[in-house]
């Protein structure tokens, strides 16, 4: 009985938090702004003064993130590899439905690479292909990936996929090929040009993208006032992707 009471107390606290988050976020979450990603000169390397992050307000994602997933598919051309079975298809980003067994309350959130500060996929990679860029973007350097898939096993978010077949006509800015692992790279090719990631553009009212290291950026302000929870925060990975309304 006391267990149930404790659970109820925790749950009510969580609901309260969600309601407050929803109201307050309405004030701060506006549509995405191009100024969130300042353009970098093409010949300059990325710097560790920046750490890219994303804050997703689930209450404002009316479709649960389907539009974000579709935008990612279009941008990178995954999800429709002709010879792969459905369970073999790449999945850079997916929607996950969470239902509370007791109350049947459910919500849906988009899950992709969380761009950890301490990424387990980088720890286990035997070749150094799984890497974290200076600006905090976790990605696969496919030039040296041997396709062992250790990173897929290490990732607690199930964010990585393996390409099972030879492909043609990939997107020029997003090379994909048989025998390599791939995942969300926060649209590095767009960020380097000063553009927002494709999924952020697809959900302009629910997502803030920006530099977590800059205390004046919109995302830092939003995280400071509203919080923003990590999935599996218990792992201590310090993810770059945060959620409101979990």
């Amino acid at each position: 009985m006391s267990q149930i009471n404790a659970y109820r107390r925790k749950f009510m606290a969580a609901v309260g938090g969600v309601a407050v988050g929803g109201l307050a976020s309405g004030v701060i979450l506006r549509s995405v702004e191009a100024s969130d990603v300042p353009a970098k000169p093409a010949d300059q390397p990325v710097s560790n003064k920046v750490r890219w992050g994303m804050l997703i307000d689930i209450n404002r994602l009316t479709d649960g993130g389907v539009a974000m997933v579709e935008a990612c598919k279009r941008e990178h051309g995954w999800g429709n590899d002709p010879k792969s079975r459905p369970e073999q298809q790449s999945q850079w980003m997916r929607t996950v439905k969470v239902t509370d067994k007791l109350t049947q309350h459910s919500f849906t959130l988009p899950v992709m690479c969380q761009h950890c500060e301490e990424p387990p996929c980088v720890d286990v990679c035997p070749t150094g292909a799984s890497m974290k860029r200076a600006d905090g973007i976790v990605q696969v350097n496919k030039h040296i990936c041997i396709g062992c898939r250790y990173c897929m096993m290490a990732c607690p978010y199930k964010a990585r996929s393996f390409v099972h077949e030879s492909l043609t006509d990939q997107r020029p800015h997003s090379p994909r090929g048989m025998g390599t692992v791939e995942s969300c790279n926060l649209c590095v090719h767009r960020i380097d040009k000063g553009q927002l990631p494709a999924c952020v553009e697809a959900a302009p009212n629910a997502v803030i993208f920006g530099d977590l290291n800059d205390p004046n950026s919109r995302i830092s302000q939003a995280v400071k006032t509203l919080g923003g929870s990590q999935i599996r925060a218990d792992l201590g990975l310090n993810t770059g992707v945060r959620y409101l309304g979990l």
Binding site: K40, A42, D43, Q44, P45, V46, M131, R133, A134, D135, Q139, N141, H143, V188, H189, D192, K193
Partner: peptide, 13 residues
């Protein structure tokens, strides 16, 4: 160029 691009984000043409 490929290592500069992937690792350092240098995208000169």
């Amino acid at each position: 160029h490929r290592d500069k691009t992937v690792i350092e984000g240098i995208r000169t043409t």
